[in-house]
Every structure is written in structure tokens, then in C-alpha cells.
Amino acid sequence: MREFEFKKININDEVLAYREGGTGSRNLLLIHGNMSSSLHFDFLMDALYDTFKIYAVDLRGFGHSSYHERFDGLEALSEDLEIFVDKLRLKDLELVGWSTGGGIALQFAADNPELTRRVVLLESVGITGYPIFKKDASGQPILTELAMTKEEIESDPIQVAPVLDAIKRGDSEFYKNLWNAAIYTAGNTPDPEDYNRYIDEMLLQRNLVDIDYALTRFNMSDTHNGYVQGSGDIHKVKCPVTIVQGDKDVVVPMAMAQGINEALKDNSKLIILENSGHNPMVDSFDQVVSIIKEF
């Protein structure tokens, strides 16, 4: 696998780490999801090397980027990328957003139509965000009660508190068990050496509560999502959008992909990957490469 240059750049009060490489003529910005980093794109970057000039950023509070300022919305991370793109004088961008990164990619496209040529969403959060429900005594979600504050999210006994404890302990086995159960639901996992590298990067995350809170408040629709009224920003996305969704994803339900597709109408297409979970870069690698190259 090719080596990609690892760099850092000042973004106001933050420092963003990023991987850069490729010899192609098309500019590609890769945006990772929650509990991950730009390293998760390593094999994808290698496969796209000849087609694109590639930039994969560690978002604020992930990987090797700084985390000086806390945040409440995905818009803050999109704005970090706006500054990043401006500093590198990039244009005609194709964005690939994975999971939470899909929401950030859509927000970037809405706010920067003149810079965005195309968006590819991989198992993306929906345009009405990702709710966190309070839990009952047995740990089951109470579907009529939302966790509203950062304090309530931080103390969530199922989705959040155990992950925070694992990060504090540097518990790679917890992370592996969690990802085997929730992410790799199609039965595929990375090679052990690669898996260990990815987990080492996952454990560098410092912003879990902020990200989870931001996901609950993310709402580009026209409706109220239980937390906030929608911004309607989805209507500002003017570029083509390809929505890629695995049929075995248990993290992001199919309804979220369908909701994005319906909201964008003629501007989008939905591709359903068979026997693929929340990480199609492992479950459906060749298809994902082909989809990103195709334009």
C-alpha cells in the first residue's frame, strides 16, 4: 500500500491533521465518522490514488487533530473544513462522507455550492439527525423520552458511558467487541494488524459527548426532530448526491438513506449494497471504489 503524506495545518485556534496524496486530476475530500479517523480510509485512498488528489482530515477532537474548543453542532466541523479547503485553495471538490461524516459533507455542500461538485454518502446519518433515547432499568430505550443535555448523554449507560470508560482505559478489546457487534454485521472484519491500527486511532477520540450531542441537533430538514426545528438546508444542496447504504447496517437504518434520497429528489440516487454493514469499505470495497470513481 502506498504511503500518504501526513500533515498538519492551523485552522483558527485548532490544528487539523490530514493525509494527502494521489496523482489524479479530481479533488477528493474524505470525511470520517464517529469513533474513527482518517486512517480508516487508507485502503480506499490507495485504490483511488491514480484518479484523485486526495485529502483525508482528522476532524476536531479525533485522531491527531487538536480539540481546544468544544462544539454543539456538526456545522462547527463543516466550518473547520471550509477553512481547510480555503487555506489549500481547493475547488471542484468531490466529498465522501462516512456515517457522521455524511452529515458534515451534506452541510458543507449546502453552505459551499460553488466548491462542491459531488457528494457520496456512505452509511450516512439522516437529515433529521440521530436521536439518543433515555434508557429504562433494563437498559432498553424509552422511545418517548429523549436525552436532551450533554450531561444526560454523557451518563447514558448503554451508548455513551461505556465508550467513555473504554477510551479512558485505552481498552482496545472493548472497542473490538463493540465494532464486531455493531459495525461488522456482515461477518467481515479487517485483517488483525489493520484492525489494531484502526483501534489505536479510535482511542484517541476526545469529543464523544460533543459529537453525540451534535448528532441529536443535526437537522437539515423542514421539520422538528424532537430537539430542534430543521434548518431547511437540504434544499441548498445543488450538486449530485450518491447515497450508499448497506442492507445489514444496524447503526444507521435504511429509513435514513431513503429520507435523504426523498429530500433531494432528482439530485440523488440511492445504491443499496447487499450483505454489507456500516463499514462498506470492508464489506463492499470494490463496489465503493467503483461508485466513487464513477461520475
Rank of each mutant, 00 (worst) to 15 (best):
4 F>M: 10
15 V>C: 07
19 R>C: 06
31 I>G: 03
31 I>S: 04
32 H>W: 01
33 G>V: 05
33 G>L: 08
34 N>H: 08
35 M>K: 00
49 Y>H: 13
52 F>C: 08
60 R>D: 01
60 R>F: 15
67 Y>G: 01
69 E>V: 02
70 R>N: 11
70 R>S: 13
70 R>W: 00
75 E>Q: 13
77 L>Q: 08
79 E>I: 06
80 D>C: 03
87 K>L: 15
88 L>C: 04
97 G>L: 05
101 G>S: 07
104 I>L: 09
108 F>W: 14
118 R>Y: 03
126 G>N: 06
140 Q>L: 14
142 I>G: 08
143 L>S: 03
145 E>P: 03
157 P>F: 15
158 I>Y: 00
161 A>G: 01
162 P>M: 12
164 L>S: 12
165 D>G: 08
169 R>K: 12
191 D>Q: 14
199 I>P: 04
201 E>K: 14
205 Q>V: 04
206 R>S: 05
207 N>Y: 00
208 L>K: 06
218 F>I: 03
219 N>M: 11
220 M>N: 05
225 N>M: 12
232 G>D: 14
232 G>N: 13
233 D>N: 15
235 H>F: 15
236 K>I: 02
240 P>I: 09
243 I>R: 03
244 V>H: 03
244 V>R: 04
251 V>E: 14
253 P>C: 13
254 M>W: 02
256 M>L: 10
258 Q>P: 03
258 Q>G: 08
259 G>F: 04
262 E>V: 06
263 A>W: 07
266 D>F: 10
267 N>P: 00
270 L>W: 12
273 L>I: 02
278 H>I: 05
282 V>M: 07
288 V>S: 11
293 K>I: 14
